[in-house]
Amino acid sequence: MDVLRRNNVTITGVADGPVVVLAHGFGCDQNMWRLVVPALAERYRVVLFDYVGSGGADPSSWSEERYSTLEGYAQDVVEVCRELELDRAVFVGHSVSAMVGVLAARAVPERIRALVMVAPSPRYIDDEGYRGGFTAGDIDELLDSLESNYLGWSSAVAPMIMGTPERPELEQELTDSFCATDPDMARVFARTTFLSDNRADLGEVEVPTLVLESARDLIAPREVGAFVHSAVPSSRLVTLDATGHCPHLSAPRATTAAVLDFLEDLWPAG
């Protein structure tokens, strides 16, 4: 299966414009970006995708071994970048994808020129001298919640939805399948997301970085945002007047404006 189909890649916007890649975090899929895409698409070529194990990506390409480390998810990004022959794109990653972007930018620096981290956290579990906000027991509770809520996921429906986003009659299924993930895959993604520790990787980020935090975020509190900002050498921190872990849903205008500001500095309008 080719990479574009495997990762359910969607491309929109200005065909020959500068490229912005939008990467969803743990939980749902590329539809998380639907409120910011229209504004970005006016000036940029916007690339969306689903990680294998999420949304409309090909479930048969999933393996527990590969997707038990963030490197496996970064490999998805690298392969999509290579397949599209992206050159100096900006990678926008929400939540855990911010760390995936760090790993991907290190692997293919020629293809990723800058990072936008939306509600990032390099480590969720508290550690000595570091407050991530969670304990290992909290993560177990989340895993229990995943197990209790299949959210309409069905092994029979998943293959039908996979890779056919262009079919309008499947629009309803897409809505219904949003956030519906194979529970086994979701479990692995959750563990990988919440048990990873990427604090040491932040210092090695060599590209300009925008850290975009939500003012009231239970998952990535402000002290974590401050930590990321201070650890990433050439980073800018913007705090959005937003509530929740998904400012691109709860405060899409402010989120889009901050991203556009950052892109404008990278690619000044001619």
């Binding site: 975090g25 743990f26 939980g27 749902c28 539809n31 998380m32 939540s95 969670f134 304990t135 909290d138 993560i139 177990d140 509770e141 989340l142 895993l143 229990d144 919640s145 995943l146 209790s148 809520n149 959210l151 809505t175 949003f178 956030c179 919440f194 975020d217 239970l218 998952i219 929740g244 872990h245 998904c246 849903l249 709860s250």
Partner: peptide
């Protein structure tokens, strides 16, 4: 909610509610 429930709320419940305008029968603590 419990802390684990909050994680689930932020990653699934709230996005779903935004997308669909309604969600039903979600198990939380």
């Amino acid at each position: 909610l419990t802390v684990g429930g909050r994680l689930y709320h932020e990653t699934h419940f709230a996005p779903l509610l935004h997308m669909r305008g309604e969600v039903s029968g979600i198990a939380l603590e």
